[in-house]
Design a protein around this nucleic acid. Structure first.
Lengths: 122, 122
DNA sequence: ATAATTCATTTACGCATGTAATCGATGGCA
DNA sequence: TGCCATCGATTACATGCGTAAATGAATTAT
């Protein structure tokens, strides 16, 4: 049960803050996507069926929270990309971006810090 | 007109070698996916309609070649992932993988080389 | 010349997705 | 105490996708 693009937009909102009511989620998404509240309700139901979120009744409405961790989702997506396009390895991806898209100075500095912390092979 | 998962498998084959006949493509895919030749034909047609490949008649059959460059596809996919999950920056992705998935020694060595070649910020 | 084979093109079909409207229950208000 | 507003749940519907079979045109074999 993979989670779709539209559904992931709902997850993003819940990962930033939760629990939230359907109304609050719709409000948060109103900015980016132009969705009717009914649309958000549909997505919430699909996410419930997929076991990606939980709903707790609070009075007459529900409060929704994520069950699927953002970390897990991000990793699955990233690993999938790496496996499909970069032979499962990180270096070729970095090579691709450094060749193709100019990296910002801040990005470069951060990369240098990150790499410096990695253990040397020998 | 985005190109789907199944279609990208066909593109992979054509990126490695081309031009190829439908039969050759089906043979190449027979290994990985278990597709009937009819399925491959459908995908070839969809790719033709999307303008991702070209077909040149050679006798009674067609020879297919990619029009969409692998480089462009890879970049679009990678950039999309970065934008959606890592705020558009490469460093957080690298941080994610170095934290979460142990990098191989070869990968680390290559990363160090790559990073070393980047211009210093100041 | 006709039949059989081989291609590509067209049609098929179930499921997921994006996007909602409608229905049915429930709680507040007159 | 009955009606209106408000939720969530159910239903809807067009499009894309995965997977393929049927059809039709051309070519080769008989």
């Amino acid at each position: 049960m993979p989670i779709s693009e539209a559904e992931s937009a709902v997850m993003q909102v819940l990962w930033e803050r939760h629990p939230l009511t359907a109304e609050e989620i719709a409000a948060a998404l109103g900015a980016a996507r132009q969705w009717q509240e009914a649309t958000v309700k549909t997505l919430l139901n699909r996410l419930l069926n997929k076991g990606a979120i939980a709903a707790v009744k609070e009075g007459r409405r529900y409060l929704y929270s994520p069950l699927l961790q953002r970390e897990a989702y991000v990793h699955a997506q990233s690993k999938d990309l790496l496996d499909r396009l970069f032979d499962g390895r990180l270096a070729p991806l970095v090579a691709h971006f450094s060749a193709r898209q100019k990296l910002g100075a801040a990005d470069i500095a951060e990369l240098k810090r990150l790499i410096a912390e990695l253990p040397d092979d020998e």
